[in-house]
Nucleic acid binder design. Sequence first.
DNA 1: CAGTGGTCTAGACCACCCT
DNA 2: GGGTGGTCTAGACCACTGG
Lengths: 263, 263
Amino acid sequence: MSPTVNPSSKQAQEKAAQAHGVDKANPLPAYAQLAQLLRGRISSGEYPPGSRLPAESSLAQSFGVSAMTARQAVGVLAEEGLVKRVQGSGTFVRKVGVVASNFGLDALGAVLANPDQLTVRIIKAQVQRAEGEAQEVLELPRGEAMILVERVILFEDKPFTLHVSQTGFDPASPTVESMLDTAVLTSLIFQEGYSNFKKGELRLLPVVLGQREAEMLELEPGRSAFKLEHLFYGFDDRPAAFGWFIVAPEKMPLVSRVGVWDE
Amino acid sequence: MSPTVNPSSKQAQEKAAQAHGVDKANPLPAYAQLAQLLRGRISSGEYPPGSRLPAESSLAQSFGVSAMTARQAVGVLAEEGLVKRVQGSGTFVRKVGVVASNFGLDALGAVLANPDQLTVRIIKAQVQRAEGEAQEVLELPRGEAMILVERVILFEDKPFTLHVSQTGFDPASPTVESMLDTAVLTSLIFQEGYSNFKKGELRLLPVVLGQREAEMLELEPGRSAFKLEHLFYGFDDRPAAFGWFIVAPEKMPLVSRVGVWDE
DNA sequence: CAGTGGTCTAGACCACCCT
DNA sequence: GGGTGGTCTAGACCACTGG
């Protein structure tokens, strides 16, 4: 007898499912269990790279779940880039490929997630005439007033990144004062609070540290670092803020894993 | 007009919703239509950053689709990082955030997708004793034989990237000969064909070009470039191939968009 | 407690691919 | 034509959140 006295209505065909691996008593959702099981078969070579997975309907029947659940399980692997769905043909195991990888800025976020250990040192905050790259990308008339702010963000009292930002000087816009606010920085990094921006574009570049930058970050001039450019647009779809972060690669490791990493 | 006797407090919204509702004659799937519609409301400020979206069940009713379809639509926006689901609470519009972004190597893939216009120039291919970083990450005994291959990949007859790779010298392994094969390179980049590797780890770094590297790539020494390190593991879970690509940032732009980019 | 997202079922029809 | 993934429905129960 089953010790479970759950008055739930349907538990008819659970036995077949349990025999094949999906355990409904397991708190892990069925689709995740099935995904892990498939991952194991790929990892072990049972489903070698390039081979076709059983059809979703077949998986559903084999493991005693509905087609939607099986589909969801395959969807997990597809999102991981482990398999590739081809309509009308099947789902195929991918090989390890470099282009499958994505580099995220989680490391940056992880550090900045501790506002207690962050200090912001304003290096420069001034109004100046628009010129050069900033004037161009912000679509400002040449010579128009523009705000420039340079800050060094310290993490645990050690320089972490140098942030340079430039915005047009429009007294009617809340951007002006907010650019001087340190809070806007962390809220820019995360997706919290309220935003003056509708969208943004980021560009990652390698740079060689100049004398001045190196000093502010307490690094050796001439060595390489990441430059993370950002251009944000307001809700009127006009460019509103342009700038960049300079970060040493040790502070912001960009790693990516591809293929089967079971553990 | 049919008399609506629904005593709901959101009548106005619902009518507007059905007016711009989901068109089943449209070849675009219903979930995509709904996602686009929600995207527009976020973009226009109707659902400002930080606000809560209508419940999925409410969306389903308003637009005359099933709950699963509405859920799928919200899922699209969630995957785009535009909204954030919070169980038991609701789905909230995110603000534009830097950490939401991911940098992909699509540009690299796009170039290498044309094998006709690719030439591979072998610079160096030799057996040498394992030492230094390669000996370490490949977990080889010090002094063990190791294969080193250096190639310059040319795209449209102009240097595109320098690739250095190192593998242990195991005559029983197919890796030995395949490392000298140019085909393995493109198959390593994409997820095509068969793979000797189970998984891989990639690391993106900024570097300063040395004299020799710069010459091979026909660039100025001392300028910055990307270094894409890779470490691949065989199906026995042991590190099998270590190396890196050197690419100029112009050849491999790493851009990322966050927020609402309707167009 | 009521409302929300998270999961799941057992069907269904379609567009597409391959033989 | 038969199999595959892609989409969709109309329900259901659960875990979690908040007042």
